[in-house]
Simulated assay, not measured.
Amino acid sequence: MATRRHFTQEYKDQAVSLVLNSGRTIAEVAKSIGVHEMTLGKWVKSARESGRTPDKDLSESERAELIRLRKEIAIVKMERDFAKKVATWFAKEQP
């Protein structure tokens, strides 16, 4: 029988912050920190519902910059993924 792990509130808050501020998915963060993605998902949902989200403490200019940077990261990720696909395609074309 598996034993149940317990996490401090500070640990949960840091995990939630990773999800909300890094642009990574819940699944990616959960895998990297060794927590089941359903567990992390519940933490994120709880934090959002209770208003404990890290973004709440930001000023308007900081919030605008964060939004801009998140969009920029998303574009860079799309470009990276496209470059990988092109490189794979070219590698397959080589005799």
Rank of each mutant, 00 (worst) to 15 (best):
H36E: 14
S61D: 04
R68L: 15
P95E: 14
K31E: 06
A30N: 01
I33T: 05
T3F: 13
K92T: 11
H36S: 13
Y11M: 10
T53F: 09
F7R: 13
D13C: 07
G23W: 08
R48C: 05
K77D: 02
K77M: 01
V19M: 04
F82G: 01
K77Q: 04
V16C: 07
I75E: 11
D55T: 14
Q94H: 02
S22I: 12
A30W: 01
A47C: 14
K84W: 01
E72H: 14
V44L: 11
Q14M: 15
S17I: 02
V76R: 15
E49T: 11
A2K: 13
K45M: 09
K84T: 02
E79M: 14
W89A: 10
E72T: 15
V35H: 06
D55C: 04
K77T: 00
R48N: 02
A15H: 11
R70A: 13
N21T: 12
A74R: 06
L18V: 02
V76W: 02
T8S: 07
S17T: 09
W89M: 06
I73D: 06
A91T: 03
I33F: 04
W89C: 07
V86D: 07
A30T: 01
R48V: 02
I26L: 05
L66M: 09
S32R: 15
W89I: 08
T88C: 09
K42L: 07
A83N: 04
A15F: 11
E93C: 01
Y11I: 06
R5F: 01
R5V: 00
R70G: 12
S61C: 06
R80E: 00
K45C: 03
E49N: 07
S50K: 12
I75Y: 05
A74M: 04
F7Y: 15
L58P: 01
Q9D: 12
S59P: 00
I67N: 12
A47F: 08
R24D: 11
P54G: 02
M78A: 12
V86N: 01
K77A: 03
I73C: 09
D81T: 09
R63W: 05
G51P: 04
F7D: 10
S59G: 09
I73S: 05
A27P: 02
K77P: 00
T25E: 02
G51N: 08
D55G: 08
D81L: 09
S17F: 04
V76F: 07
D55I: 13
L66A: 14
I67L: 10
F90L: 13
K71S: 14
R24T: 03
T39Q: 08
G51Y: 12
I75H: 09
F90P: 00
E65P: 00
R5P: 02
L69D: 03
A87F: 07
P54K: 03
